Structures are given as C-alpha cells and as structure tokens.
Amino acid sequence: MIIRILGEGQFDIAEEALDRLNELDSAVEAAIEADDETTFRPALVALLEGVRTVGVRHADDSLDESDLILPPDDASIAEVRQMLSDDGLIPG
C-alpha cells in the first residue's frame, strides 16, 4: 500500500503494519468526533509518525498513485474532518 502524507511524499506500507496504523487512526477519529483539539494534534502527529516509522520512503520521482492520502501534521481539525471517510483516514 502507498500512503501519501501531503507536502511530504509517499511511503510504502506493509500489510502487517496496517493494524497498528488503524489504532492510531482511531485516536484521530475519536478526537475529531469529540471536537477535542487538545487530543487531536498529538493523535495526528502520532499517526503520521507511525507511517514514517513503519513505511519505506517511496521514490520521489515515482508516478505511482497513492492508495491513501493523509493530511500534513499542521492540518486543522476541520481540514482533517473533511478528509475522513466512514472508516477514518485509513480504512480497515
């Protein structure tokens, strides 16, 4: 799976890493549902750091399409709310 972090680039993510990323995504989703800015920011940063940690940087010159697009770590709660699907930022 290829995940793009807006403004940063793409990361190749192994299937076995998705469960952990879904846990982090759930924390982001819960903070948004509660409209809790205090927990939202650390949850979003943790999710993006999780992608950076488990992912392998995809070649910058690659034209491969991203499977998922995540917001940058400075995105507002309103911006991320607009990006959410029924399954959160990371389906599963």
Rank of each mutant, 00 (worst) to 15 (best):
R81D: 13
I32W: 09
E29R: 15
L68S: 05
L89V: 06
D19Y: 10
D64R: 09
D87T: 07
D74N: 15
A34H: 07
T53K: 03
A34N: 11
V51M: 01
L18M: 15
D64S: 09
T39Q: 14
G50D: 07
D73E: 15
D36M: 05
P91F: 14
I90R: 07
D12F: 05
T38W: 08
V28H: 12
L21R: 06
G88R: 12
A17C: 12
E16Y: 08
R20N: 11
A59V: 00
E16M: 08
P91Q: 14
E23A: 12
F11K: 00
A75I: 11
L21K: 06
L21Y: 09
I90Y: 14
D19M: 12
V80N: 04
P42R: 06
A14D: 12
A27E: 15
A78G: 02
I69P: 02
R4H: 02
L21I: 06
D60A: 04
L84Q: 11
L6W: 01
E65V: 10
E65W: 03
I13P: 06
E23W: 10
D74V: 09
T38G: 04
D67S: 09
E33C: 04
L6Y: 02
I13V: 14
D86A: 14
I90T: 10
D60V: 00
D74A: 09
M83T: 04
L21A: 07
R57L: 03
A27R: 15
E16H: 12
L70E: 09
V51L: 04
Q10V: 00
R81V: 00
R52A: 01
E37M: 10
A31G: 04
L70C: 03
G50M: 03
E33R: 14
P71G: 07
Q82K: 08
F11C: 02
M83S: 08
E23S: 11
I5T: 04
P72I: 01
D19Q: 15
L84S: 10
E15M: 06
V28Y: 14
E37H: 09
D12P: 00
V80K: 02
E29H: 09
E65Q: 10
P72D: 15
D73K: 06
R20M: 14
S62A: 11
D67C: 02
G7M: 02
E65F: 05
S76R: 06
S76M: 07
T38L: 12
L89Q: 08
P42L: 08
S76Q: 08
R4P: 00
D73W: 07
I3E: 07
G9W: 01
G7V: 01
D19G: 13
A46I: 00
G55N: 01
A75L: 11
G88E: 15
D87S: 13
D36K: 02
R57A: 04
D64Q: 10
D74P: 02
D36P: 03
L63W: 04
E33N: 13
A46R: 09
L70I: 02
P91I: 09
T53W: 03
A46W: 01
S66A: 15
H58V: 03
E23I: 12
L44H: 07
A59Y: 02
Q10N: 11
S62H: 03
M1C: 02
E37I: 10
L21G: 08
D25I: 05
A34W: 04
